[in-house]
């Protein structure tokens, strides 16, 4: 199910402004890869190019290739809608659909994709909520609005919604930054559990979090303000945090940055 991603010579633009320059990396299947780096270094921007969410913003463009299982996502005949079915995403702030109940939220991707079989949908809702460690908390109020849950529960609901469409890759854009420590822990445990089935890429500002949950870590930085962001290095997480290859990585990790 999970697949590996090969990024080659990726340049990302907002209109004429080059936001990220020359990124090449390999993201392994069934593992957690963390993107770290200072604000504005382009780590979230790179993440959004992995499921073509980048181009939702007007005038945003990309050059280079992103291969998923040998298929370039930016080939002309690839449909971005199909890409996003295969590469799911969880956002910084929990964003359940306010007009839908908990179970409708989880089933939203399938329903809007044309699935009408009630049994299939119910099965997917339960499986996804169990997968997101939320089932026991909400099983008695599946028809209540999703907006009524706590922040941490809402974020797990969003994860359940993302995995309900059975993607191969799950992108997480600072999924815990709006949550309290206990909810954060719950999400981190969840990441640990589901990585056996998915390729997970997580952007985080929290270096302890990167160290705790990820197998590989990529460090992004900017040469200077106004210059495009770039990938400094990428390695096993233990190596990055104990013995990084580059001085700027070490400076950032030890807090001697900027």
């Amino acid at each position: 199910m999970a697949q590996r991603i090969d990024v080659k010579d990726l340049n990302i633009y907002y209109d004429r402004f080059k936001a990220v320059e020359d990124v090449s990396m390999t993201i392994e299947a069934r593992s957690v890869t963390a993107f770290i780096g200072p604000s504005g270094c382009g780590k979230s921007t790179v993440l959004r190019t992995l499921n073509r969410m980048h181009e939702v913003i007007p005038k945003a463009t990309v050059t280079g290739t992103v291969d998923l299982n040998g298929r370039n996502l930016y080939d002309r005949d690839v449909d971005p809608v199909a890409v996003r079915r295969t590469v799911g995403m969880v956002f910084q702030r929990p964003n359940p659909f306010p007009t839908m109940s908990i179970s409708d939220n989880v089933a939203a991707g399938l329903k809007l994709g044309g699935e009408r079989n009630k049994a299939v949908l119910a099965e997917a809702v339960e499986r996804s909520l169990r997968g997101a460690n939320l089932w026991n908390e909400v099983k008695d109020r599946l028809d209540k609005p999703g907006a009524g849950l706590s922040g941490g529960q809402q974020q797990r609901l969003c994860i359940a919604r993302a995995i309900a469409v059975e993607p191969q890759v799950l992108l997480m854009d600072e999924p815990c930054s709006a949550l309290d420590p206990i909810s954060t822990l719950a999400i981190e445990d969840l990441i640990e559990e589901i990585k056996t089935n998915y390729t997970i890429v997580i952007v985080t500002h929290n270096m302890q979090q990167a160290a705790r949950v990820s197998d590989r870590t990529a460090f992004f930085n900017l040469a200077a303000t106004g210059k495009p962001g770039r990938l400094v290095e990428m390695d096993d997480t233990t190596k990055i945090f104990s013995n990084p290859g580059r001085k700027e990585t070490e400076d950032y990790i030890s807090g001697r940055f900027g």
Binding site: N69, G70, R71, L73, V78, A82, V83, R85, T86, Q168
Partner: peptide
């Protein structure tokens, strides 16, 4: 998978 890889050129 089929959606991505099985599409005609």
């Amino acid at each position: 998978m089929a959606i991505l890889t099985g599409r005609p050129g």
